[in-house]
Design a protein around this nucleic acid. Structure first.
Length: 645
RNA sequence: GCCGAUGUAGCUCAGCUGGUCAGAGCAGCUGAUUUGUAAUCAGCAGGCCGGGGGUUCGAAUCCCUUCAUCGGCUCCA
């Protein structure tokens, strides 16, 4: 007999060799029906894996990511089984579960193309196989046998994978006639996979290596109930409506032109206004926080980027150098502002008393991104960074980091922007050669970042080996409407450029010292930030530009026209002038008292409320109430009167 | 750059296997209507069917090529 301990710390006894499914069944058949995997002593296992020793067992229902993971992994195998029947001779790469669903990388042979129009057929075959209620069997074999098995099948991908595994760790899973190399865990059978949809086909390099063969990746998702699938698909549809590319077009915020060139955004009047507001909003705050504003040209001599090292590393991927009438002289569109800012630093001598120097610029940069990479406003070839560089002493690093984190938090909070992840990227300690800068400095900087984040109450993920070669960093990431992750703000320590540009300051000891450089952006780029801002707020608020604040129009298609009418109404009312007057009058006071200059957010009636009213909320204070447009105008009038007396 | 798909009026799209196939709705314009929950009625205007080349008596429809876009991969200072 063995003891099985449950999450509530109760213990029950079972025969050795019992499996999780049997244990669950002994508690209640209802429970057994609802679980998809179990964690046994910390490892996620198949429900049918025998347990032979005293163990702690946790059952995973659909809500748990372990359950979904297992479910989708088995779904991937089901799809592979269907593919093997439909495409004889097809070879398989890897087929994991992902955050939402699963995929399988396959090689159907050189002359065979699987395209999206083939997906329904594959789904039919999957349905057919699922109905047969195939059991999923786990088989453990030796490395030699496994190699032999897949070599006979002629599957070079699997044999390559196996040859990298250690002997004794090899398990196969058999589903019907389909046997796959797999660590598991899996569902006991395919009966529970009731609803699935294959979503898309894409190319993917074998092992993610550009130089290796491109396989066909098929994405899908599955659920234990049709209703869940329907809801998921409906959610995807809704998400598509929030896509900033769609909203940007509909609301005439920005456009692209083939004639101007791909990836070069054109800001339409309304979008440009939004963009300018963001610049003004941030600039005001930067001045308050001890930044100086600088400005640098859009081109630079190629030599500049050779000194900075950017030319060597990124020159081939940039807009290529342009020649001038002067023989032998070449310029480049600036791919980053840093070298320019370094030269601003070097333009004047510095004492330790001047540090830290915080130099900010809304600098437009140009990068020749790969054709296939361009994506709306989130990945473009010309964009404006809200860039800044802090030059400081090593001991000031932590304090500067805290200041920057504080600024990021302030900006995001002010814009009602709550969902982001913060990631700290450290160097790979086992491969120190890859990085520039002394051991001591790296340790100091990494410690400073981690401590600063903790002290600012920032939840961070720490990832080793992701640091840039020139220093560790802290990035702020967000997801777009379709779930893709984008980097916005970034704070990076740099030991490289101060060396390359031979930057110095005179210390208290009257000796020359090397300053530390911190690169930093809050929005990342205005383009990307606007994109993410649109997608984050769309659906919640209508998008529009209020006199003094970003306002979001409702995304539900039905209301677009209505929103435009509201917009016109307000534009034609005297609100704009009123608020301008207000800001004019209290402008100086505001600055001194640090009063926030963020008046009103308008939310135009959402789906259910079929009304021509608007609900009004004041930023940071919540709802003020629902009112008609005329009332809203009067309300603002009163507010402004009270405020400016 | 790589794999797959798409490209028809400002927008969303219909035009199947080549021969009234240049269409619809919304937006726009003109006029009427003034009716409280975006969408009253009538009329008008809008497109070299992404660009180039080819097959054919004939192509939006088939083929090639190029550009752009979409979904991924790779990349991402």
């Amino acid at each position: 007999m063995i003891n099985i301990k449950f999450p509530d710390n109760s213990v029950k006894q079972f025969e050795s060799g019992v499996n999780s499914l049997e244990i669950a069944n002994s508690i209640s058949p209802g429970l057994a029906r609802k679980i998809y995997a179990s964690t046994v002593n910390g490892d996620v296992k198949d429900l049918t894996r025998p347990i032979n020793e005293d163990s702690a067992v946790i059952f995973h229902k659909w809500e748990d990511k372990e359950a979904k993971h297992t479910f989708w992994h088995t779904s991937a195998h089901l799809m592979a089984a269907a593919l093997e029947e439909l495409y004889p001779g097809i070879k398989f790469g890897i087929g994991p579960a992902i955050e939402n669903g699963f995929y399988y990388d396959v090689d159907p042979g050189d002359d065979v193309v699987i395209s999206e129009s083939d997906l329904p057929l594959i789904e039919d075959k999957m349905r057919e196989l699922a109905k047969r209620n195939n059991k999923v069997e786990r088989i453990e074999i030796s490395k030699a046998d496994a190699l032999k098995l897949f070599a006979e099948k002629g599957d070079e991908y699997k044999t390559e994978l196996i040859s990298e595994l250690e002997d004794g760790t090899i398990s196969l899973y058999k589903l019907g006639n389909f046997t796959d190399l797999c660590r598991g865990p899996h569902l006991p059978d395919t009966e529970k996979i009731k609803a699935f949809k294959l979503l898309s086909v894409a190319g993917a390099y074998w092992k993610g290596d550009e130089k290796r063969k491109m396989m066909t990746r098929i994405y899908g998702i599955s659920f234990p109930k049709q209703k869940l699938l329907d809801e998921y698909l409906a959610m995807l549809e809704e998400a598509k409506k929030r896509d900033h590319r769609r909203i940007g077009k509909e609301l005439e915020l920005f456009a692209f032109s083939q004639k101007v060139g791909m990836g070069l955004p054109l800001w339409l009047p309304r979008g440009a206004e939004l963009r300018q507001r963001l610049i003004d909003f941030l600039t005001d705050e930067l001045k308050r926080r001890g930044y100086t504003i600088v400005s640098t040209p859009h081109v630079g001599n190629v030599e500049l980027y050779k000194i900075s090292g950017h030319y060597e590393k990124y020159g081939a991927d940039s807009f290529q150098p342009m020649n001038t009438p002067q023989e032998g002289e070449q310029f480049m569109l600036k791919p980053m502002n840093c070298p320019h800012h370094c030269e601003i630093y070097n333009a004047t001598p510095h004492s330790y008393k001047d540090l830290p120097i915080r130099m900010a610029e809304f600098g437009t940069v140009y990068r020749y991104e790969q054709h296939g990479e361009l994506h709306g406003l989130t990945r473009v070839r010309s964009f404006t960074q809200d860039d800044a560089h802090h030059f400081c002493e090593a001991d000031q690093l932590k304090d500067e980091f805290k200041r920057i984190i504080d600024l990021v938090q302030w900006v995001f909070k002010s814009l009602d922007f709550n969902e982001y992840d913060a990631q700290i990227s450290l160097r790979d300690a086992s491969d120190k050669e890859r990085y520039i800068g002394s051991d001591e400095n790296w340790e100091k900087a990494q410690k400073a970042i981690i401590e600063a984040s903790a002290e600012k109450g920032l939840d961070t993920i720490v990832v080793e080996g992701e640091a840039a070669f020139y220093g560790p960093k802290l990035d702020f990431m967000v997801r777009d409407a379709i779930g893709r992750e984008w980097q916005l703000g970034t704070i990076q320590v740099d030991y490289n450029l101060p060396e390359r540009f031979d930057m110095t300051y005179i210390g208290a000891d009257n000796q020359k010292h090397r300053p530390v450089l911190i690169h930093r952006a809050i929005f990342g780029s205005l383009e990307r930030f606007v994109a993410v801002l649109i997608e984050n707020t769309a659906g919640k608020f209508p998008l529009w530009l209020s006199p003094d604040q970003v306002i979001i129009l409702p995304i539900s298609e039905k209301y677009h026209d209505y929103s435009k009418k509201v917009l016109n109404f307000l534009n034609n009312s005297d609100i704009r002038t009123l608020i301008d007057e207000r800001n004019e009058k209290i402008g100086k006071k505001v600055r001194d008292n640090e009063l926030k200059k963020i008046p009103y957010l308008l939310i135009i009636g959402e789906k259910e409320e079929k009304s021509s009213t608007v609900s009004v909320r004041r930023q940071g204070e919540g709802d003020i109430g629902v009112m008609k447009l005329e009332e809203f105008v009067n309300f603002i009038r009163e507010e402004v009167k009270n405020e400016i007396g």
